[in-house]
Amino acid sequence: MNKLKSFQHPYTRGAVNSVKKNNIEGWLFVSPLVIWICLIILVPIYIAFELSLFNVKIIGTSGKFVGIDNYIKLLGKSKFLNASLNSLYWIIGNAICQTFFAFTIALTINYKFPGKKIMANWIILSFIIPTVVVVVIWKLMLSSSSGVINSVLIDIGLFDEATGFFSSPNKAFISLVLINSWRWSPFLALIILSGLNSINREMYDASKVDGANFIQQFFFITFPNLKSVLFVLGLVGTLLSFNIFDIIWLITKGGPSSATTTLPLLIYETAFTKFRISQAATLSIITSFLLLLFSIIFIKLMAPKEDD
């Protein structure tokens, strides 16, 4: 399925297409990175796979070879099921929130208004600060005794009394999804914005002549033209948000009542608070497998056709 011809951007239309298949040189260019990544991923994965076949409890101690026992036991565990579901909800919740925020930001910045430049430059603020800082900000903002959000909501009469944003399973989950979306949406927005800028202006003008309003424009021009951007954001975004560990760990540690224990947290907990390193390795292998499966399916179904 190799596309011999390179995709031609509208700007380059009419260019002489002389790109040839160039195996050796091509591999030469990509190999440094590919080797780097393979070493740092494949060796650890192999170590994890080996661990998953034993029953080592604390890392560094020895264990008995148990074959695929860990895998069989694990699949029936309610904790695993619970964490998988949480991860699923986490991905969906983040996808919805981030899509909403990112499009709101991108479409807004795409318009002209005073202060647009400043906003476009600084909207990224929440993405460039360390996660630890994100946690500090939101822990304090959402605190029920000295948090600004509670006090504002009470002042404007929305709440009668302070609410604990992490006190019940649902509230904690939603709060975390929002915090994580807060962190990532501006970056996604900029990527979407770049996609928007590459859409030919003439299409909008033409549609206006046809009487389309701006909502119709969004669904019939904007959205379809963002396909390839959205493909990568969909793939990488899903994987990245699945992998989120630090924000959850630093704020709720997976609680209350395991409501925010996603698979990465379960893996960490199993390895370092339960001290079942082999079980954690098993979880890791299964998780990687599921994500790989997802990626392959996603690519097969959604990959944009790059021919013209």
Partner: peptide, 27 residues
């Protein structure tokens, strides 16, 4: 340089994110 396996490499790169940091930590 459209070389043999370029699409595979391209997608594989993105798929590296399929291995969560937590998994790689101990190894």
């Amino acid at each position: 340089l459209k070389f043999y396996g370029n699409k595979f490499v391209e997608y594989s790169l993105l798929v590296t994110y399929a291995f969560p940091g937590v998994i790689l930590l101990v190894p």
